[in-house]
Design a protein around this nucleic acid. Structure first.
Length: 1154
RNA sequence: UGGCGCGUAGCUCAGGCGGUAAGAGCGGCGUCCUUAUAAGACGCAGGUCGCGGGUUCAACUCCCGCCGCGCCGACCA
């Protein structure tokens, strides 16, 4: 038989037992084995970094990542789940630096790269155990023992392979990137670090004249020979590196005359504010569009850079020479090896980013020191490439007067050379003033980033050479690919993610760091020519390989070193080989490692070591059907995967394998951000959240999972509140548990034993299998309430499957919740006496058992993906009598499919109405202050819509019991206590009568509702004269609203009114008292912890004859309800009497167990 | 400063192709019910559906503007 249910259930303890069972029987492995050969469902694990403690946000991702694979597996799919760990990158290095108490790059180099990366490798696994524990404890089934690891050799080589594909196709190239540079520390900082260092400072704000070159076209615009562009900047130190001036093409610009006769060009909208600043008359002479200024040339404020370039005048100011001629002449000038460099001329460009919020509307562009500026420069590069019509043989030189140490170089102004840039601001300003180029100067207060470690060091934007992937060339493919992905929520597709793709720039891949996948590019020491390699083996096979001994000796010294390290810095850097490009030259690896986001984005193939190994696995497991991460991964893993996949496997991809869109994933749930108790970001220092472990110990993983799944759509930001997690226990888990407990308790009492009744072939105790049981009657032959709950069950199955197929766990949970509520609060409550009845094997009782049993079994399967622990516990015990014959775990079962034939929509509607009436009846009683215990003679029910009335009339018994009344009467005419209000059916009538609607409403409201209804009933329509028009309304055009007239104990609902007959006869009063006696005795039984089957003797000692009479009059009823074999009015020996109050009468109650 | 999202009850959040009594859960208060229930039922209080404008017979819902919050970015030339 079933195990008895403990009076108090501890979910955490129960879960531990389930975990032990899963482990002992390898249920996860078994669940996979059962689905081998089934349809594939591919899941990708976005690799977490295990070098920090897991927090509640990780619980959510891990829970949702478990839910859908579990569900699909039960639905019959074969879903491999390979774990993975992200192990490279700055976070790891920073952790190790913290541990070593160092910070700067040189310090790492001083410490030694070799010991440093060894530490990195070890640090990666520091919290591994915590992660694995969490993963297991929350019930996330994933193959941890088969996890891919991004630093493993096979993984690294797979990444190398992909990079080689890109390199060989020219998609991986070297270029410049503007980074936030800590000059004193000689390193770039990450965005996170930069964000920490913002401080408010006062910087100089200078308005500088850029004299315009008097060309013909400038004259044509009305610009004098002594005119200047008026340019604003807050970083005077960047002026020596000025290369362009930018204007907005569609803005109005003014040519103004200053009081001293000089002429300026600035944005028309800013003339007043400049006038305010200088208090001089600026007379607008002409308005032109920004686009007209494009191409105008100017003299830069400093020209020290020109020293390096010969004949600068010809280049800088080529006059009206045709561009092609100009370029030809350039080539003549510089051509030696077929390439040449030259200066891009100082001229005005059009740019959309120019605004008139501040400054002058003419923007100083120093491409070396600003990202936007640099983009302008790159566009110029593109333009020249276009002009030349071939490969880039002529390239603009990037002007940079500053060295990486933050000091001016020889190209800078004399008085600045060798000095820190920020220190020179003042002198530069003075120099401009001396040369008459300063128009105005003031202070500007703004936020500026400083080094978060050396707070006195301002950061500067600085160009560094680095490696890029030409993702921007694949923008359209990426967008097309994206359009096929099913994003949840939908708006991610064209919103955040789509926008991000639209503004795609080339992926800055390389990092001048240590612990990462080494960039697999080797450079010829002689020619600078490069080649990419795709494996260590390929490297070793190169002619004249040297340097492998560095690794060998390290390994010899420390045999513990994982072999995977040999493909890392510094070992890999030591390996060189003969150059195929120049005799006697050597090939040496570039020094950079790559962005760790590339690692994770390569995971769809790299997890298998593809293509060196795992070709079949990759072919089988690509693309993914489902992935999920939080929204912060939009530009992270979501992007890196899509970009890499599109570049490699897309239509224009570098690989032979072409995959149809979308790839690499088809469905993606983007989770919201998890917030702390206070709605703020979770923060360890604020302690505004509970540790996951605490939650597991107190409430269990199921409580947490259900809270995640059932309380909100997963993409909303979730508040991680302890109370809310706790609440999911009574709200769902415990309610279901109580239903289950009820069943088991009574099954034990009645000896309902499925093992004794069911034979034949069994597996998962589906409805079909149950049907073979002795005493099992077809659903159609069972009482209506059984048919109803089974209808609800099968409807729930259908809806849950629909929702889950659409990745909508939230609604699925709501449906499950509603079903369990119906089971608990209506089915079991209404059926209790069927389970109590003495006729053990009566068909009715067996029907009840089989019905409830099926409901519980099916529900258990339905909830299994959501709350796998509770489901397993229920399943194990509900199938215990059949152990060995049925599947030992619910997670091996098929997900219920539901039986459409059992769904009875009409019955559902009818029962809903009945429950509604019962609810209204109770409300009416409340209103009239009549306890439910007090029987009443009659209720009257008036329905506005009578379709279901005949059905309801057949179900009086239910209502009578629920409302404790002797009679239920459905009134057809309720005029005494009801008023009828006829209203337009707005939705129907609106489109028909339009503007007349308010008048129709008014007329109907004024009229006598009952009469209108009578008219409608008699003639089928209501005629109204509205605004001179005759409108005929049929029953479809109106809706009837009922309301109880005052003075009646009544309650009104949507479609009905329930009226109580409040007259209480002496017999009813006596029965009410008797019911109270029962309640008192039952209370006492519970206090005495009687068994449900214990027979008792009862003594009621009271001075009130009324009470005694009531008991005498209802003796049998009391005896039956309380299992009392004897009731007397005397004290009973052997027990203490208890003072009680029964229906306002004092009494002493004695109860003895027989 | 841009993009995206959000703003509905004390709290956490649903809902809506525009239709005229605005929903749930929790919390509070009150009443009732109980031989499954650390439960459950019923009720009460609590809402200018962020603000302003527009479209419409009808707007919480659609459109525009604004304000506030959050996230992701950018920028301070």
């Amino acid at each position: 038989m079933f195990d008895p249910i403990p009076s108090h259930v501890s979910f955490p303890q129960m879960e531990e037992e389930v975990l032990a069972f899963w482990k002992a029987r390898d249920i996860y492995g078994e669940s996979l084995k059962r689905r081998e050969g089934g349809p594939k469902f591919v899941f990708f694990e976005g690799p977490p970094t295990a070098n920090g403690m897991p927090h509640p946000g990780h619980c959510l991702t891990r829970a949702i990542k478990d839910l859908f694979p579990r569900y699909r597996t039960m639905r019959g799919d074969y879903c491999r789940r390979k774990a993975g760990w992200d192990t490279h990158g700055l976070p790891v290095e920073v952790e190790v630096c913290k541990e070593l108490g160092i910070h700067a790059k040189e310090e790492i180099e001083a410490y030694g790269i070799e010991p440093f990366i060894q530490k990195c490798q070890q640090s990666v696994w520091r919290y591994m155990q915590e992660w694995e524990k969490l993963t297991e404890r929350i019930g996330f089934w994933i193959r941890l023992d088969e996890a891919y690891v991004t630093y493993h050799q096979s993984y690294v080589e797979s990444v190398w392979w992909s990079l080689k594909q890109l390199f060989d196709k020219g998609l991986l190239y070297q270029g410049h990137k503007i980074v936030w540079w800590w000059a004193q520390g000689g390193t770039a900082l990450s965005a996170g670090e930069v964000g920490q260092g913002y401080r408010q400072v006062a910087d100089p704000s200078v308005y500088v004249k850029f004299p315009i070159v008097a060309t013909e076209s400038a004259k044509a615009l009305g610009i004098d020979s002594n005119a200047s562009l008026l340019v604003w900047t807050t970083t005077p130190w960047t002026l020596p590196s000025n290369q362009f001036a930018a204007v907005h093409p569609t803005l109005d610009y003014a040519i103004v005359r200053d009081e001293d006769g000089s002429q300026f060009v600035l944005a028309a909208a800013l003339v007043p504010s400049i006038h305010e600043k200088v208090k001089r008359e600026l007379k607008i002479e002409k308005l032109i569009k920004g686009s007209q200024l494009v191409g105008v040339r100017y003299r830069p404020p400093f020209d020290y850079f020109t020293r390096e370039i010969r004949n600068i005048d010809r280049i800088v100011f080529p006059g009206s020479i045709d561009t092609k001629v100009f370029l030809k002449r350039l080539q003549d000038e510089f051509d030696n090896d077929g390439t040449c460099s030259f200066m891009v001329e100082f001229k005005v460009l059009g740019a959309e980013f120019v605004t008139t919020d501040s400054g002058t509307g003419v923007v100083h562009i120093a491409p070396a020191f600003g990202e936007v500026d640099y983009e302008v420069f790159q566009k110029q590069e593109e333009r020249f490439r276009h002009v030349m019509g071939g490969p880039l043989r002529v390239r603009p030189v990037l002007l940079n007067t500053v060295n990486p140490d933050g000091k001016f170089n020889e190209q800078g102004p004399d008085f600045c050379v060798g000095r820190g840039v920020k220190d020179c601001d003042k002198d530069i300003t003075r120099n401009l003033k001396d040369r008459g180029l300063l128009f105005h100067q003031e202070q500007y207060i703004h936020e500026y980033p400083f080094c978060w470690r050396a707070e006195e060091d301002p950061l500067i934007q600085y160009p560094r050479r680095s490696w890029f992937i030409k993702t921007s060339q694949f923008k359209d493919e990426m967008l097309a690919n994206n359009s096929h992905i099913n994003w949840l929520p939908e708006h991610i597709k064209d919103g955040r993610f789509g926008n991000f793709l639209e503004t795609n720039v080339d992926w800055a891949l390389s990092r001048e760091r240590f612990w990462g996948t080494p960039l697999p590019i080797w450079v010829c020491s002689e020619t600078g020519q490069m080649e990419a390699l795709d494996s260590y083996e390929q490297l070793l096979a190169k002619p004249g390989v040297e340097g492998t001994e560095v690794w060998d000796s390290a390994k010899q010294q420390n045999p513990e070193l994982p072999d995977d390290l040999k493909v890392h810095k510094p070992y890999i850097d030591a390996v060189t080989y003969d150059s195929p490009f120049a005799k006697g030259a050597r090939m040496q690896r570039v020094t950079e490692v790559i962005d760790c986001w590339y690692d994770s984005g390569a995971m769809p193939f790299a997890q298998w070591g593809y293509p060196h190994t795992g070709r079949d696995a990759f072919a089988d497991q690509f693309p993914a059907d489902f992935i999920s991460e939080a929204i912060d991964q939009t530009r992270g893993w979501f992007y890196s995967q899509l970009a890499i996949s599109t570049l490699l496997f897309g239509e224009r991809g570098t690989c032979d394998e072409k995959v149809e869109y979308p790839h690499p994933f088809k469905n993606c749930i983007v989770l919201g951000l998890m917030l702390g108790e206070d709605g703020q970001k979770m923060s360890k220092s604020k302690r505004n959240y509970r540790e996951p472990n605490e939650i597991f110990v107190k409430y269990g993983a199921d409580a947490l999972r259900w809270y995640f799944f059932a309380n909100q759509p997963p993409w909303t930001s979730i508040r991680y509140k302890e109370q809310a997690i706790k609440d999911s226990i009574p709200e769902f888990l415990l309610r279901l548990w109580n239903c289950y407990s009820f069943f088991v308790t009574y099954a034990a009492i009645d000896g309902f034993d499925p093992a004794a009744r069911i034979g034949g072939k069994l597996e998962q105790l589906s409805a079909e299998e149950l049907a073979s049981a002795s005493g099992y009657r077809p659903v159609s032959e069972r009482p209506e309430i059984d048919r109803w709950i089974l209808s609800e069950l099968n409807r729930t199955v259908r809806e849950v499957v629909q929702r889950m197929d659409a990745y909508d766990n939230y609604l699925a949970c709501q449906k499950l919740n509603a079903f369990v509520d119906a089971l608990s609060n209506w089915y079991i409550r209404r059926c209790r006496d069927r389970f109590w009845s003495d006729e053990k094997d009566s068909p009715d009782k067996l029907d009840a058992y089989f019905t409830l049993y099926e409901c519980l079994l099916t529900t258990t399967k339905l909830i299994a993906p959501f709350v796998p622990f509770l489901a397993e516990t229920l399943w194990r015990n509900l199938t215990k009598p059949l152990a060995g014959k049925v599947l030992e775990s619910v997670h091996l079962c098929d997900y219920p499919a539901g039986d459409a034939l059992v769904v009875d929509d009409a019955l559902s509607a009818q029962m809903a109405l009945l429950r509604d009436i019962a609810s209204l009846g109770r409300a009416a009683r409340m209103d009239a202050k009549l306890k439910v215990r007090q029987p009443l003679a009659r209720v009257e029910v008036v329905l506005s819509e009578t379709t279901h009335q005949p059905w309801l009339e057949k179900h009086d018994a239910l209502l009578k019991e629920e409302l404790n009344v002797k009679e239920v009467r459905y009134a057809t005419e309720g005029k005494e206590y009801i008023t009828y209000q006829v209203q337009p059916n707005f939705k129907v009538l609106g489109p028909l009568v339009g503007k007349l609607l308010p008048k129709v409403k008014e007329l109907l409201g004024k009229a006598n509702g009952a009469e209108l209804l009578a008219q409608l009933k008699a003639t089928g329509q209501i005629g109204l004269a509205v605004g001179g028009e005759q409108v005929e309304l049929t029953s479809e055009h109106v809706q009837v609203r009922l309301s109880a007239k005052p003075g009646w104990a009544a309650a009104q609902g949507a479609g009905c009114v329930v009226v109580l007959n409040t007259e209480v006869t002496p017999a009813l009063v006596q029965e009410g008292i008797a019911r109270d006696v029962i309640r008192a005795v039952q209370d006492r039984r519970k206090e005495m912890q009687c068994q449900y089957t214990d027979r008792i003797h009862v003594g009621v000692v009271t001075e009130t004859a009324e009470l005694r009479d009531a008991i005498t009059a209802n003796l049998t009823m009391i005896q039956e309800a309380t299992l009392a074999t004897k009731i007397t009015f005397e004290a009973l020996a052997g027990s203490e009497g208890k003072e009680v109050e029964i229906a306002d009468f004092a009494a002493k109650l004695f109860v003895n167990v027989e």
